[in-house]
Design a protein around this nucleic acid. Structure first.
Lengths: 120, 120
DNA sequence: CTTACATATGAAAGTATATTCATATGTTCA
DNA sequence: TGAACATATGAATATACTTTCATATGTAAG
C-alpha cells in the first residue's frame, strides 16, 4: 500500500489549456494506473527479483530457493506469498515440499524488458 | 534504497543439490538484479506512473502535469527528479517553463508490457 | 500418534519513501 | 532592477515495507 495523502492544491492555472484538456481526456482511470504501479512495485524489490529470476528456467521448492539465494526460509516464504497473491508465481505440493514456478510468460517478458533497459 | 539486513541463515541443507547447483550457476550477479529491481521500483509508485502516462504521447511542463493529475507542484517536481535521475524522462527549458518527455521507447515498452498483464 | 521435516505466519523493529510546507533558484518582462 | 511566474529543494511528518524471531500448520514415516 502506498501512503494516502490529500489531493494536491489546485492553485495553478494551466498554462496550456488545450494540451491539458487533451491529455486529461486520454489519461487512463486512476484505478487502472494504480493497479499498474502495484504490479511494478512487486518487481521493485531485489529479493523478489532474485526469486523470480531463480524460477526463470525451472520450478524450485522454498528451501532450495533460500539456499540458492542465501536468504532465510522465512524471508523467502513471506515474499513468495506476495508473489503468489500478485499471481506472478504458482505452486504445487509434492509431499512435504512446495514447488513454485513462474505463473506465465508475461512475467518472463516483463523481466526481460527490464533487463534490456538496465543493460544499456 | 532498500533496507539492509544480515544474510539469511544457512541452516537448510539443500534437498536437491543438483538443481541447486545448476540454478545457482545460472543466476545473474546480485548487483545486476539489484539494478533491475531499482528500475522497477521507479515504476512502482502511482504518482510516477501517472506522470509517465501523461507523457505517453506528448511533452508537458510541470505545472500542466500538476493540473492534469491533480497533484501539487512540489510533489510532481520531486517525482520528476527521481524519474530524471533514473533516465526515464528528459527535459528541455522553454522560457520559464520546463518541458518533460519520456526518455526513450523502452519506457513506453515497459509500460505497455505492464498494461497487458494488468488488463488480463 | 509421535517425531522430524518443510513451509507459513504474526508481531516487532528498523528503514525507506512520498507528501506537505516553506523557501530558494532561475527566468522573463516591464 | 524589481515583480511575477515556473520550477526545484530541504526538512519534517506520516506511512509502508522487509526482515527477523518465534511459533504454528501441514505432511510423511516409523
Amino acid at each position: 500500500m502506498e501512503p494516502k495523502y490529500e489531493e494536491g492544491s489546485k492553485d495553478y492555472i494551466a498554462a496550456h489549456e488545450e494540451i491539458v484538456a487533451k491529455v486529461k481526456a486520454s489519461q487512463p482511470e486512476d484505478e487502472y494506473l494504480y493497479d499498474l504501479s502495484e504490479l511494478f512495485k512487486i518487481f521493485g524489490d531485489s529479493t523478489r527479483i532474485k526469486i523470480l529470476y531463480s524460477l526463470f528456467e525451472t520450478e524450485l521448492c522454498v528451501g532450495d530457493m533460500a539456499t540458492i539465494l542465501n536468504l532465510s526460509q522465512s524471508s523467502v516464504s513471506h515474499q513468495l506469498r506476495i508473489l503468489k497473491d500478485a499471481k506472478l508465481v504458482k505452486f504445487r505440493r509434492d509431499g512435504k515440499s512446495i514447488f513454485y514456478s513462474l505463473d506465465d510468460e508475461h512475467v518472463r517478458t516483463i523481466l526481460s524488458m527490464g533487463m534490456e533497459h538496465v543493460e544499456e
